[in-house]
Amino acid sequence: MKESLMDILCDPLDKSELELEVDERDGEEIIEGRLVGTVTGEVYPIEDGIPNLLPPDMREE
C-alpha cells in the first residue's frame, strides 16, 4: 500500500486513527508491516503490500 493511503484509512471498529508500523518498504510502497488502532489497540497486518482491515471477527476466513 502507498503510505498516502493513511489519509483515508481508519480503524474499522470505531473509525479512530491508525498508526503505521513498517517492517519493509519500497519507496512510497509499504510491503510488510501493520496498522494499529490508536484507541482499540487492534493490530491489522500488511502483507505483500495489502493491508487487511477486516474487523477481527471476519479475519479468519
Binding site: M1, K2, L5, D7, I8, L9, C10, D11, P12, K15, Y44, G49, I50, P51, N52, L53, L54, P55, M58
Partner: peptide, 15 residues
C-alpha cells in the same frame, strides 16, 4: 492500490 475490507468500514468519513 488495494485494501482488504468489509465494504467501506475502514475508510474515513468524506474520504
Amino acid at each position: 492500490d488495494v485494501v482488504r475490507t468489509d465494504l467501506v468500514a475502514p475508510f474515513r468519513d468524506d474520504a
